[in-house]
Simulated scan of single mutants.
Amino acid sequence: MKVADFHCDVLSKMQALPDILFEDDHRLDVTAERLLAGGVGLQCFAIYLSAARGRPSFESVLGQIVLFRDKIAGSGGLQWLRWREELENQISMPPSWGMLSLEGVDGLEGNLFYAELCFELGVRFLGVTWNYANWAADGVLEKRNGGFTEKGRELVEWCNHSGMLLDVSHLSPAGFWELKELSKRPFIASHSNAAAICKHPRNLSDEQIKALIAMDGRIGLTFFPSFVCDEGTAKAEDLLKHIDHVCSLGGDKQLMFGSDFDGIDSWLENLEHPGKYPEFAELLLAHYPEDSVKGWLSGNAVSYLKLHLPSKASKP
């Protein structure tokens, strides 16, 4: 079964360690070799600027776009997915596509022209914040739980016009509900789990999950152990509790996966890297109908993209 994974942090590692090779470097969770072994037909690569590397800048954003172009969509062998037309004629998942997302708009420096440049350069998903406040909105760990700034609302309006899609993983609860009113398209949570199962502050409440389901957005379950279990050693099997819960709320057709590989420092037993996806698929098939499993692994993600990825024909 083909897989679509909506979040990994390979690019920030490669920017920090320029000698990393995407093909098979042991310092990466996600490599070209493991994507092939895992049947991953679509991998979304996040542009994340760590505060440990200094003040976020647009130069660093551009640096990661160049890394993706040269080392992943270039010598790494992945095709760069940017337009709806690139999926429309595919009967099944293509063999090896990569997409770009921006995890936190800090590096855009409050400049909407930089957002436009990112879109022109192939970024298709925008996560407004990381965990804390920036010029656009509050993150989920910002204690005041504020929503969007005036400049942040201008950013959302620009996304509505341009076709840039929005991601609420890391956004504050107040920001989530404000974005529900502001966004003209269904948004996603690329790497978040169910708070009813694990009380991590980055996980989604039942009300948020039901809102995403109602708008036909997408929920990408993440593999970071602290998002999966409140205590104890977390295993791949523990994700089933989150799947069951999201489905109990009506989310069978909105569920997907966003591993957060290379953005995590601990791993689920039996799901340590994308090469383990076939074993995970077998686990899912032992508990759920095949049609549902195919949807969670890739079908739901691809159906969302076929509806909402911007069209080259209608490019502003």
Results as ranks from 00 to 15, higher is better:
residue 2 K to A: 15
residue 5 D to W: 09
residue 6 F to M: 15
residue 10 V to P: 01
residue 10 V to A: 13
residue 11 L to I: 08
residue 12 S to C: 15
residue 16 A to E: 10
residue 17 L to N: 05
residue 19 D to S: 15
residue 21 L to P: 00
residue 25 D to A: 12
residue 26 H to I: 01
residue 27 R to N: 04
residue 28 L to T: 00
residue 29 D to M: 08
residue 30 V to T: 12
residue 36 L to G: 00
residue 40 V to F: 02
residue 41 G to R: 01
residue 49 L to S: 07
residue 50 S to I: 00
residue 51 A to Y: 03
residue 52 A to H: 10
residue 57 S to I: 02
residue 60 S to P: 00
residue 65 I to D: 10
residue 66 V to S: 14
residue 66 V to F: 07
residue 75 S to R: 15
residue 79 Q to C: 11
residue 80 W to D: 10
residue 81 L to D: 01
residue 83 W to L: 03
residue 84 R to Y: 02
residue 87 L to S: 07
residue 93 M to G: 05
residue 96 S to K: 02
residue 97 W to C: 11
residue 98 G to Y: 05
residue 99 M to T: 05
residue 99 M to P: 01
residue 100 L to F: 07
residue 104 G to P: 02
residue 104 G to S: 09
residue 105 V to W: 02
residue 106 D to C: 04
residue 109 E to L: 08
residue 113 F to G: 12
residue 114 Y to N: 14
residue 116 E to P: 00
residue 116 E to M: 10
residue 118 C to R: 07
residue 121 L to K: 11
residue 122 G to Y: 04
residue 124 R to H: 06
residue 126 L to W: 03
residue 127 G to M: 05
residue 128 V to H: 03
residue 131 N to M: 03
residue 138 D to L: 01
residue 139 G to F: 02
residue 140 V to T: 04
residue 142 E to C: 06
residue 144 R to C: 00
residue 145 N to M: 08
residue 148 F to Y: 12
residue 149 T to D: 03
residue 150 E to A: 14
residue 151 K to C: 02
residue 152 G to W: 02
residue 154 E to A: 15
residue 157 E to Q: 14
residue 160 N to T: 11
residue 161 H to T: 11
residue 164 M to S: 09
residue 168 V to E: 00
residue 172 S to Y: 04
residue 177 W to V: 07
residue 179 L to W: 08
residue 181 E to S: 15
residue 181 E to C: 12
residue 181 E to L: 10
residue 183 S to W: 06
residue 184 K to C: 09
residue 185 R to Q: 12
residue 190 S to Y: 04
residue 192 S to C: 09
residue 199 K to E: 05
residue 202 R to L: 03
residue 203 N to I: 00
residue 204 L to I: 06
residue 205 S to F: 03
residue 209 I to P: 04
residue 212 L to W: 01
residue 213 I to K: 08
residue 215 M to D: 09
residue 221 L to K: 08
residue 221 L to T: 06
residue 222 T to W: 02
residue 224 F to D: 04
residue 224 F to G: 01
residue 226 S to D: 09
residue 227 F to A: 07
residue 230 D to A: 15
residue 231 E to C: 08
residue 234 A to S: 12
residue 234 A to F: 04
residue 237 E to G: 15
residue 241 K to V: 01
residue 244 D to N: 14
residue 245 H to Y: 13
residue 248 S to R: 14
residue 249 L to N: 10
residue 249 L to P: 04
residue 251 G to V: 04
residue 252 D to C: 10
residue 252 D to L: 05
residue 252 D to I: 05
residue 253 K to F: 01
residue 262 D to S: 09
residue 267 W to L: 14
residue 269 E to H: 12
residue 269 E to Y: 06
residue 271 L to C: 12
residue 273 H to D: 12
residue 274 P to Y: 09
residue 275 G to Q: 09
residue 277 Y to R: 06
residue 280 F to A: 05
residue 286 A to V: 03
residue 286 A to P: 02
residue 289 P to H: 10
residue 291 D to K: 15
residue 291 D to Q: 14
residue 295 G to E: 03
residue 296 W to Y: 06
residue 299 G to N: 07
residue 300 N to Y: 02
residue 300 N to R: 08
residue 301 A to D: 02
residue 302 V to E: 05
residue 303 S to K: 14
residue 306 K to I: 03
residue 309 L to V: 05
residue 310 P to T: 12
residue 313 A to D: 10
residue 316 P to H: 12
residue 316 P to V: 09
